[in-house]
């Protein structure tokens, strides 16, 4: 771009030191036993995600997809200003419940992650963890232009520009911010995608796991969690 400062080079040399609680250490127990602890290896599971195949029968899979489309449980995780636009969906005017859409407080029970607006690097880390803890099949909707190309935060040093570099996005809803009507229309479109059996984001994530991880780690410098948060 024309207004880019040619002389500025970002610091790519400095490594962020591992946090103190994540460093390997030896602990002496009260009874004199010496224990070696490596938090990153001991506390977490290192397994990579695997591709879950569809049901063998197309009829069964179609039936399941119908159920998935009509029971969208959204993770109540607002990342930016878009979270404000999601609230009216529950209220009498828009009432998303009548389409089988409801909000779940924990990622374990949710199967739709809505990235509602700009995503700072700090929040991206949490969003990745939340996404990985959700159970397959899971869907991601990018809400607002910030998730598409950075939106008004296009030159910010701390917000990502393209959400699909870091998470497999099934659907974008454009706007800054999109109104609840647009959101509803987007969710209806997502339902159609699920019904067609094309919303296989979790499998895409597992197949291109290395690419996604490389992208994520290139912006999150203090990576102090396992590669896949089970």
């Amino acid at each position: 771009m024309k207004d880019m400062d040619k002389s500025f080079r970002k610091d790519t040399e400095t490594e962020f030191p591992l946090r103190e609680e994540m460093r390997p250490r030896t602990v002496t127990a009260p009874d004199g036993q010496v224990i070696e602890i490596d938090p990153l290896r001991d506390y977490f599971c290192e397994e990579a995600p695997k591709v879950h195949r569809k049901s063998y029968s197309a009829i069964v899979e179609g039936f399941y997809n119908w159920a998935r489309a009509n029971s969208l449980w959204i993770l109540g995780f607002g990342t930016g200003c878009g979270a404000i636009e999601m609230r009216p969906l529950m209220t009498p005017r828009f009432d998303a419940y009548r389409y089988g859409i409801q909000w779940r407080p924990t990622p374990r029970q949710a199967n739709l992650l809505i990235i509602s607006g700009y995503l700072s690097v700090k929040t991206l880390k949490r969003a990745i963890r939340a996404y990985e803890q959700m159970q397959q099949p899971k869907f991601v909707v990018g809400l607002g232009s910030c998730t598409i190309n950075g939106g008004m935060y296009w030159d910010s040093y701390n917000t990502i520009k393209r959400l699909d570099d870091y998470l497999p996005v099934d659907l974008y809803i454009a706007g800054c911010m999109p109104r609840p009507e647009a959101l509803l229309a987007g969710l209806m479109e997502l339902k159609k995608i699920i019904r067609r059996g094309e919303a296989e984001g979790a499998n895409k994530y597992a197949e291109n796991f290395d690419w996604y991880k490389a992208n994520q780690k290139s912006v999150i410098k203090d990576w102090d969690m396992p590669d896949y948060s089970w």
Binding site: F8, K10, D11, N149, K161
Partner: peptide, 30 residues
């Protein structure tokens, strides 16, 4: 900031546009 290794970002010799271009990928067509 979390895991920040560059110079403090509010200093004026820190070019936030250049930093973002060197860090995050653009979507063409903007």
């Amino acid at each position: 900031l979390e895991g920040w290794t560059d110079m403090p970002p509010y200093r004026r010799d820190f070019d936030t546009l250049a930093y973002s271009q060197q860090t995050y990928r653009d979507r063409p067509g903007r």
